[in-house]
Write a protein that binds this DNA or RNA. Structure first.
Lengths: 332, 332
DNA sequence: GTGAAAGCGCTAACAC
DNA sequence: GTGTTAGCGCTTTCAC
């Protein structure tokens, strides 16, 4: 039914080897043969079957990216960076969304184990360090955005602790002393690190940490609103809030607005990630930006480097973040 | 290096056929053999090479989804719906972002032509009807969200014309007579249809269409702001604006806000798509929602149905949209 | 410069 | 219930 290399060879009156050579641009094909083969390929509408090719070559030139969520505009930018770089090197990027479900993530990682792809990048994972190390022994994997403690796996991310520090420091520099934190209840490493950075910044500035200024909940928007409501119910209210994600920050801002506060004046709010919405929001949202494109390019570069060699680079690379001040934060 | 079915067979002391039977759950394997094979598989950490399997079976059970952009939260929800449904049927979904670039999209479609995937769903495409028809003759493709006029290809989308009508009608029902439109300059069919629906709604209500109330530009946020600025520079200003996308609506709202207007009172703004941001925005954004999950499920169901048969269903399916009124629109 | 042939890992027909 | 074997479509060695 579908046309194969054999059909092309027969029609062109050459051997399959010659067709293959033309296909792969190998040397030692006469111009006449090459021309003839190419014409036949076009005439027959032939497209090589990559299952055959990849099986034979034992490589697919495809890299899988697994995202924990599809709602995060950050991931789109990262993947865009990956794709551009990968294409240049003759690789393709495909992606899949795990929804942070171990079952789905495992199913997707099967594409790596069953040789459908050459490598995988995880933008957050539910696998343990031990599981990751086990996988990394036999397969090429990398983490991006979100490291896993104890995992000896190639990782590219910002320094979340320092980024959390810088975010809190920016609020302190604006004159704030009563700074609250909206964080999440989960074991996600990056959030914990951002939280640690916040604590260190307060300590450095000689500000005492108050339990009632620290809120833990889910990643959902609702949590940002609840946190803001809680802070505003306190007798001694904070003047600034640092949320470990922009979504939580936006929800907190919305709640403050509904409560009649002017965000940026009555209360300052700082987010994290610099998602698309930050600039559009009313007020625009101050945040910490990650170098998404660069992270995508870099992790792909390193991963592809690993594909060839037995000496895999499994280092942890930190890329530079940047604090961006917009309307949602103001001097006190 | 990597362990194959042969290794398992040798270690277990059975033939590769028996291992294959266990792998595929075919009948006619004694319990003893099955147990032995499974133990050996676990012991050796064997994972079947799908390149071999797929080559032999001439199917991959993988469907590719191509998105024009990665920034559209709609797509994430659609793909989520696809994935859930596909997994139930033993299929996997992978996705790729074309950035509306023909070169990239073509490169991604190669995965279909070279048999790396069984079918492809395009959430918007830069291919012409003719090109699509040509592809559909030999391959399994479907369009979702965004139809192409003249393409006899399986398509699942909302009725954009009616949706545009309903959006404008909702504004009319709120008492508005001076209703402007923010649309895009491109040939994207869905936008033109929404625009046509807007025109029909005005006609039905006996409202004359004014050229200076219709703005065409790019998809970028900037365009929404420019449009609002233009409308507000008119002597006879509109009291409501319908934007054919939520992003444009948000940008228009932001601009109106900056200009000192209270959106929802001084000016009403209606978007389209019901992206995540709509609910969080200040004010929350009225919009038209598409049944994303359902669309994803449905298109996958139909596409998988097509995989088996020579009689392909290439109909155009319309799913129900819904107008959602929030704070950004008000009664005049 | 070109062709014959082996073989990548797997499934499935066929034989027993 | 199990094994033997052909062959999916391709690349690549080896011989000429």
């Amino acid at each position: 039914m579908s046309v194969t290399i054999k059909d092309v060879a027969r029609e062109a009156g050459v051997s399959v080897a010659t067709v293959s050579r033309v296909l792969n641009g190998s040397a030692n094909v006469s111009e006449a043969s090459a021309k003839l083969v190419n014409e036949t390929i076009n005439r027959l509408g032939y497209s090589p079957n990559f299952l055959g090719r990849n099986l034979r070559k034992r490589e697919t030139n495809v890299i899988l990216v697994i995202m924990p969520s599809s709602e995060h505009s950050l991931y789109g930018t990262i993947i865009s960076g990956m794709q551009e770089y990968a294409n240049k090197l003759g690789y393709d990027i495909i992606s899949a969304v795990s929804n942070s479900t171990t079952y789905v993530e495992t199913r997707q990682m099967d594409m790596l184990f069953n040789r459908t792809v050459d490598g995988a990048v995880l933008l957050g994972t539910s696998f343990s360090a031990q599981e990751l190390n086990e996988m990394a022994r036999n397969y090429n994997i990398a983490l991006c955005c979100e490291g896993v403690e104890g995992a000896d796996v190639l990782t590219v991310a910002v320094n979340d602790e320092q980024a959390g520090y810088d975010a809190a420091k920016a609020l302190i520099d604006l004159g704030h002393r009563k700074i609250a934190l909206i964080s999440v209840d989960s074991s996600v490493v990056s959030s914990r690190k951002r939280e640690n950075g916040y604590l260190r910044a307060l300590a450095d500035a000689g500000i005492e940490v108050r339990e009632d200024y620290i809120w833990h909940g889910s990643y959902l928007a609702h949590n940002g609103a609840d946190a803001m409501e809680h802070f505003m119910s306190l007798d001694d209210k904070p003047t600034a809030v640092f949320a470990i994600s922009d979504l939580l920050a936006a929800a907190a801002i919305k709640k403050a607005h509904v409560m009649g506060l002017t965000v940026g004046k009555d209360i300052s709010v700082m987010g994290f990630d610099n998602i698309t919405m930050c600039e559009m929001f009313i007020p625009s949202i101050s945040t910490v930006s990650q170098p998404c494109r660069k992270m995508g390019e870099f992790v792909i570069k390193k991963l592809i480097d690993n594909l060839g060699t037995p000496h895999k680079d499994n280092r942890y690379y930190n890329l530079e973040h940047e604090v961006i001040l917009r309307e949602s934060t103001g001097r006190i």
